[in-house]
Amino acid sequence: MADLSATTTLASGRALPLGIVLPAIVVGFYVLAAVIGPILLGFDPVATSLADRLKPPMTALANGSLSLLGTDAVGRDLLAQMLAGARISLAVGAATLVLASLIGVALGVVAGYWGGAVDTVVMRIADIQLGFPSILLAVLVAAVIGPSLTNVILVLAVTRWVVFARVARAQTLTIKSRTFVDASRTLGATDAHIIINCILPALVAPILVVATVQFGLVIVAEASLSFLGLGLPVGIPTWGGTISAGRSYLANAWWISTMPGIALSILVICVGILGDTLRDRLDPNLVTR
């Protein structure tokens, strides 16, 4: 009871609610695991051990070590593979969002600030792209340009910029009509100065919210591409790739696909909750209180 009422107080005061704290801890744990995990438990894609293949979780291996989550089809430890995969998946997610938000914010601000033909062209392209299922677009582009780390990030960024562009444009239109923008003009501010000092600061909160919501989607999209064999090359461990490789073994070695699948689900759910909570708290319309 005491804990419960304390939580309520925290939430009603402007302290951080559980909706942020819990998922943030989980996401933080993932980041930590991705950063230091591979150092503690190294994964060598070349170190196969046929005698240890398809061992279930909690099995002692030939070299005496214990495999917590079992081994894959060529006898590599699944936990080590997942930790290495976390690093790749999180890095791809972050890089994609940075790239997508750069493209999206740039185009959205230009469209919203100057309007006219640029606005029409950019937003029509965005509308058309939104009408097309993003994973199909990703599959199409990935099949054309082939698998590599850079390409996966490019492909995913191409499917994500629209969301950022729309938010950036809407926010730019709102801010542009504020008096302080006119005031800056009467003080001799250039367009660049207004964009940097008036528009961009107001974009930070809403873009952060969008990025959080998108993060989970991007990680799932990367996993989907890897699952379809259009993601990263063999030899670079990813969750999607491991899930894909394990699906031939679902009947006799369920852990290969299941373990990274669970890890992926938990991360995506936590990031989703985090995004939703942040959106509720940082409603873009309130940023210039």
């Binding site: 008096t179 302080f180 005031a183 009467t186 001799g188 250039t190 000092n197 600061p201």
Partner: peptide
């Protein structure tokens, strides 16, 4: 724009919205 500020200045009706809230 070059003349604005140095040669001409302007005061607005609503001081609440005439200042950039983030700086």
């Amino acid at each position: 724009r070059r003349l604005c500020g140095t040669e001409m200045g302007m005061v607005f009706q609503d001081p609440l919205t005439a200042l950039n809230p983030v700086f």
